[in-house]
Design a protein around this nucleic acid. Structure first.
Length: 468
RNA sequence: GGUCCCAUCGUCUAGCGGUCUAGGAUACUGCCCUCUCACGGCAGAGACACGGGUUCGAGUCCCGUUGGGACUACCA
């Protein structure tokens, strides 16, 4: 085994990077970083039909956004074809593989028939001893030992063993010359000197086949670690149907990368009772020993909780900068980072995502009318007019726009109109924000400014039907 | 169907034979704080799938049952 830790993340570009892929990528990245090793990105694009270049870009953009930067690659399997051929030749020469000209369609029909009969659908090895030469219409199959046991010590699951007789002679090189997954992976992991293969446990049943190929090639296999899968609410493999979106969709929903990393890290891995981890802590504490065996169900609520935590932790200046594009998407065009920062500081305890925050920020930038119907009906009543008038008077007269000053003002207004503070605050709130719930008046009024505050109070008085 | 993997609160998990009348987090409920909504604080409810062993002693070890999942391609 290589002395240096080398891990790889090897997505196939047949779709966007989803949560499950990010989970795998994160564990590989953390393991490499923890050991001061190398994290490799390899694109497994041997499925020419379904692979698309733009998915490669999207996968890389997703990883960059998460901060999971790779040290080597991206390598593309489609550009390493001669290498795979070389290894195929070695197996062919050693009698560990053979050519097969069985018709794929016929094979498929036999497969279906076996399945229908309730039999195990496996290749019957009819070309095994025919000694066919490599031709344009021949595939190459691996000669799987028909007896014996193949086993390994999984770094997460422990001892796992398969009877070789359960396996059949898999195709390692298609008739078109393109290697298949199980073969290309082995050749790549050997030549890239991968030390630890950390992947989803849906690959467990591929492992014995790969191990047998390492053996035939006389190469020492890497260590394997099969991590539990992420399941949807219905406990089946996570997919789009579960609302498990591509990584970039989480970005667009206003999820912070740190929240997603923290969430993904804690799914399947733990460090005592700790829930919140900085990337540095994750790197420091991560270990395969503390990765659990049981699959985890994706829990959107927990992600949102972590996101709201990080929203509260992010410094206002940074938050303001992050908020701008989300404001733009709400139709609020502004490049005033300083104001966005002040706005964000009043909203970060009240929002779970940047999208929510941008929506809640609307009143800071736009007239609050039309008022929320229910709120207006309840608070913008003739009975509230005296409060609004008096407030308007004070603001015009230069009431101090500081938190202390405004706190005092609210109390004065209450005393002078003979009401409770809440009874003056709510009409003011609806007049200024259009809604019955908002950040504190004492922090929102200074941001609105004197002029705008007065204008909104006048508008509210007009709304009630009282001239100013 | 076959092979393989898995099994603690709804969910994420701590637990590596005795300290477990099972801990934390989230979600939920109630109370407090309070200009609203949040935040925060406090409290509550909520789990070792079942059955056999092993052991002085089992959530922790073994076997079985049940349940769930993955794989079963000239996809990856």
């Amino acid at each position: 085994m290589a002395t240096q830790v080398r891990t790889r993340f090897s997505p196939s570009p047949t779709g966007a990077l989803h949560l499950g892929g990010a989970h795998t990528a994160l564990f590989n990245w953390l393991f490499a970083r923890h050991h001061g090793g190398v994290f490799i990105l390899r694109i497994e694009d041997t499925d020419m039909e379904r692979s698309q270049a733009h998915f490669v870009d999207e996968i890389m953009e997703s990883l960059r956004w998460l901060g999971l930067l790779w040290d080597e690659g991206p390598y593309f399997q489609s550009r390493r074809l001669p290498l795979y051929d070389e290894f195929v030749q070695r197996l062919l020469a050693g009698g560990q593989a053979y050519c097969c000209d069985c018709d794929p369609q016929e094979l498929e029909a036999r497969r279906q028939a076996a399945l229908a009969r309730g039999d195990k659908p496996r290749y019957d090895g009819r070309c095994r001893e025919r000694g066919l030469p490599l031709g344009p219409k021949t595939a190459v199959r691996f000669k799987t030992p028909q007896t014996g046991v193949t086993f390994w010590h999984d770094q997460i699951k422990g001892h796992i063993a398969f009877e070789n007789q359960e396996l059949d002679d898999l195709v390692i090189r298609r008739a078109d010359g393109i290697p298949t997954y199980n073969f290309a992976v082995v050749v790549d992991d050997i030549t890239m000197q991968v030390s630890h293969v950390i992947r989803g446990d849906d690959h467990i049943s591929n492992t014995p086949r790969q191990l047998l190929i390492y053996q035939a090639l006389g190469a020492e296999p890497p260590l394997f670690a099969h991590m539990p899968l992420m399941l949807g609410k219905d406990r089946t493999k996570l997919s789009k149907r579960h609302g498990a979106l591509p990584v970039l969709a989480y970005r667009d929903r206003g999820i912070l990368p740190q929240a997603l990393n923290n969430y993904l890290a804690r799914l399947g891995w733990s460090h005592g009772d700790q829930e919140i981890f900085s990337m540095e802590e994750l790197i420091r504490y991560f270990s395969l020993e503390h990765v659990g065996k049981a699959p985890g169900i994706h829990d959107e609520d927990k992600l949102l909780w972590l996101n709201s935590h990080y929203l509260k932790e992010t410094p206002p200046a940074e938050l303001g900068r992050l908020l701008l594009p989300f404001l733009a998407r709400e139709g609020i065009a502004t490049d005033d980072v300083a104001k966005a920062a002040r706005v964000a500081a009043t909203l970060n305890k009240r929002a779970k995502t940047l999208v929510e925050m941008a929506q809640a920020a609307r009143f800071y930038y736009q007239d609050p009318r039309p008022y929320d119907e229910e709120a207006a009906a309840r608070y913008l009543t003739p009975a509230a007019a005296p409060v609004l008038s008096l407030a308007l008077e004070r603001f015009r007269a230069g009431a101090e726009l500081t938190e202390e000053g405004l706190t005092a003002l609210l109390k004065e207004l209450a005393r002078e109109t003979g009401r409770k503070v809440v009874e003056v605050a709510q009409p003011l709130r609806v007049a200024l924000t259009g809604r019955a719930a908002s950040p504190s008046l004492t922090e929102l009024i200074p941001i609105l400014g004197r002029e705008e505050t007065c204008r909104r109070l006048e508008n509210a008085l007009h709304f009630i039907g009282k001239d100013v």
